[in-house]
């Protein structure tokens, strides 16, 4: 196991220059706040949904903001790029692919994950897997919350 698996150049790049990182998204349909009291990570995800095709709502825009380690913030950034423009159902499927990858169960939809693939090596650092998952799980929760007709959800993980 080397440090390069944990902090690849792509990961450091997302950490130093995060994409879609913003304290607000105006307008947005749903806002979720996830925190991990154990490491003190805090993450906000705001999601705007494009309903122009009512049968296939799509991620129109996403903004994240938060406080956490390099892995968690970089992963949220990579997630934001991978899900924007996708149908909600498809983005959820992609989230599941990321989750399985983090649990060492192989890489599916490699091309669709975009820079998310760079996080594969973190599966070898069990204590940091939850850092990499934070953003994706918050996104998944945002979709679920939206589907349930609500616009706000707060979750404390441990």
């Amino acid at each position: 196991m080397s440090l390069d698996d944990l902090y690849q150049e792509i990961i450091l790049d997302h950490y130093r220059s995060p994409r879609n990182r913003s304290a607000d998204l105006d307008p947005h349909d749903v806002h979720v706040h996830h925190s991990n009291p154990l490491c003190g990570d805090e993450l906000d995800v705001r999601l705007r949904v494009d309903r122009s095709d009512p049968t296939a709502p799509t991620v129109d825009a996403l903004a994240f903001d938060g406080d956490g380690c390099a892995i968690s913030m970089a992963s949220a950034s990579a997630m934001s790029e991978a899900v924007v423009g996708r149908k909600l159902s498809d983005a959820e499927d992609l989230t599941e692919a990321f989750r399985l990858m983090m649990h060492g169960e192989g890489v599916k939809r490699e091309d669709d994950l975009l820079d998310g693939v760079a996080f594969q090596g973190i599966a070898k650092f069990p204590v940091r897997v939850k850092c990499a998952l934070l953003g994706w799980m918050a996104f998944k929760d945002a979709v679920t919350t939206y589907a349930a007709g609500r616009d706000e959800h707060r979750v404390t993980n441990d």
Partner: peptide
């Protein structure tokens, strides 16, 4: 973030606590 600091310092042989 302290966890990042602790991880890099560990690779330098320096054991500190983060949390």
């Amino acid at each position: 973030h302290p966890h990042d600091i602790g991880t890099i310092m560990d690779r330098e042989g320096v054991a500190v606590r983060a949390g």
